[in-house]
């Protein structure tokens, strides 16, 4: 799905764009909830955007701007990103520092009462996803979206494990193969959205807030059998 199809499904005619570039967009829309209409601030990437220094800075600026101008308003990341920009220039400037800065902005917004949600509607790849959508209180994706660290051929090259071997194992193991269903089993995605997307968003806006419980969810869903137990053992070790 592209953003032109997505935005009307989420917000109908209430969508008000404030910035719209090829790979980046900002705006707000209204969502009907049990408590009446609620305005949501959108920070979006589009066209499989690569996240470089400039885009990370722009998104961080948008989070800070929302805190200043709309205290407490929910922030929704709508994501389609191929990951971090693979350029020497961006590394020279400290791309990881810019991305970490974006994560800090999101954390501060959360601490000031902004609900943070994210929806992957295209693709979401490693560095482009970590400090944006993965920072949300609750993470969602459309069923036909794709989430991954890298594709299997690249993974085969780097790990020196034959591609055929990885492809065969991918059928039975959710742990390294790309896919929304696998990230749901890992406990990362709270839900996969289908059907009435405005209703899905309305429900998400009123879920009770809780601490990060993705490790527990990963265990319940069978995707990550160890994470919660191991973390608990470290917490409790005498």
């Amino acid at each position: 799905m592209n953003r032109e199809q997505l935005l009307p499904q989420l917000f109908g005619k209430t969508w008000k764009p404030t910035q719209s570039a090829e790979n980046f967009f900002l705006g707000s829309g209204e969502v009907g909830t049990e408590a009446g209409a609620e305005t949501v601030q959108v920070i979006g990437t589009a066209g499989a955007a690569e996240v470089g220094v400039d885009l990370a800075l722009a998104m961080a600026g948008a989070v800070l701007d929302t805190m200043r101008r709309h205290p407490g308003r929910a922030i929704l990341f709508l994501l389609d990103t191929q990951g971090q920009r693979l350029r020497r220039r961006d590394e020279l400037l400290g791309l990881n520092g810019y991305m970490a800065h974006l994560a800090k902005c999101v954390e501060i917004a959360r601490s000031r009462g902004h609900r943070i949600l994210s929806l992957v509607y295209g693709q979401a790849v490693s560095g482009g996803y970590l400090t944006t959508g993965m920072m949300a209180d609750a993470c969602y994706a459309l069923a036909d979206a794709e989430i991954k660290v890298m594709n299997l051929p690249a993974m085969a090259r780097i790990t020196k494990i034959p591609l055929e071997r990885l492809e065969a194992l991918a059928q039975q193991s959710p742990v390294f193969s790309p896919g929304v269903a696998n990230y749901r089993r890992m406990g990362h995605l709270l839900e996969v959205w289908q059907g009435d997307l405005a209703a899905c968003l309305g429900t998400a806006l009123h879920r009770p807030l809780e601490d990060d419980r993705r490790s527990a969810l990963g265990r319940e869903r069978g995707g990550r059998q160890c994470a919660e137990t191991v973390a608990e053992r470290v917490r409790a070790h005498a």
Partner: peptide, 25 residues
């Protein structure tokens, strides 16, 4: 992220980023 368990690794990194920033708060 450890590619042999890429999805679990990516989710773990995101949990660590959140946890560190929460602890710093």
């Amino acid at each position: 992220v450890r590619l042999h368990e890429a999805n679990a690794g990516l989710v773990a990194v995101s949990e660590l980023i959140r946890a560190i920033l929460r602890a710093r708060r």
